[in-house]
């Protein structure tokens, strides 16, 4: 390393835009910390609105992650391990939500699951069930937006896992399901965990699809990000700041927790 100290003289043409970039990323968070109403923080955190939104967020993000695990891991397996025709098209389709504006996802969900939507009309006519503007809608919106993160992470783990283990398991008499359960899944467990954590964090921060498809009703659909948005619109910046800090704390905790997997991996 010492031999490279001469290279530390960074050219100004790189240093100035780099400093600007760091500032754009870090300043807003620093601003939040600087403006935080530290004295009122405990009382704001303990207020009914915040606690209700926090509970709703934790519950919906966790349920969404559960749904994403149950459905997303099999999707990842199909993509990574089978010779399914049209596999690349399928991969493209299930990862579209990664780049789609969440509000578009919300509109799309409304078109399908709304009371006059393709599936929604049938649900309503047959079971009298209407999804929009319910907690279930929040979960659906979160799954739509967050599950692709899980699928991508798990598919990557499945691709790097050695398939010869599956062959060995087969020669020992294991069915594909037993092999998946006892050999493949344990082998990709770290990838599944990382995907689940990422998925959970994304679900927790979900705003656009939720507000479009589920609306903003206290106690049923108003999650933390929606509560923060409502607060800032109502001119209550203290509450908005506290909620923002809360979400930053969660994000940073997750990032630190996964440090060894991603940030550490490049070293």
């Amino acid at each position: 390393m010492s031999r490279r100290t001469a290279d530390l003289r960074v050219p100004a043409a790189l240093l100035i835009p780099a400093a600007l970039g760091v500032a754009i990323l870090v300043l807003p968070m620093a601003g939040l910390v600087a403006r935080a109403p530290w004295g009122d923080l405990p009382s704001i955190l303990a207020s009914d609105e915040v606690l209700t939104a926090l509970r709703l967020s934790l519950v919906t993000a966790t349920v969404s992650t559960g749904v994403a695990l149950v459905c997303g891991v099999p999707v990842a397996w199909l993509l990574a391990r089978t010779a399914l025709p049209g596999r690349s098209v399928l991969r493209g389709l299930v990862t579209v939500p990664l780049v789609l504006p969440p509000v578009v996802g919300g509109v799309a969900l409304l078109m399908v699951f709304g009371r006059r939507g393709l599936v929604g009309a049938w649900l309503y006519d047959t079971f009298g069930v209407s999804l929009p503007f319910t907690t279930e809608a929040v979960v659906l919106a979160q799954v739509f937006v967050a599950m692709p993160f899980l699928i991508v992470a798990v598919e990557g783990a499945l691709r790097t896992a050695d398939r010869r283990y599956d062959d060995v398991a087969a020669t020992l008499g294991a069915t594909p399901w037993t092999t998946f359960r006892r050999v493949t899944l344990p082998a990709v467990a770290p990838g599944v965990l990382a995907g689940a954590v990422l998925c959970w964090a994304r679900a927790l921060g979900e705003f656009g699809a939720t507000v479009t498809f589920a609306g903003s009703f206290p106690g049923t659909t108003r999650t933390l990000p929606l509560e923060a948005y409502v607060a800032i619109n109502a001119g209550d910046s203290d509450v908005a700041i506290v909620l923002s800090l809360l979400m930053i704390a969660v994000s940073v905790t997750i990032l630190v927790g996964l440090r060894d997997r991603w940030i550490g991996a490049s070293q």
């Binding site: 010869r164 283990y165 020669t171 008499g173 082998a187």
Partner: peptide
């Protein structure tokens, strides 16, 4: 493969690591 009753031991053994 699972119905053949053919056992296999490969170079790196491939013991299930977990």
């Amino acid at each position: 493969p699972r119905d053949r009753r053919v056992g296999m031991v490969v170079q790196d053994y491939l013991l299930f690591p977990k």
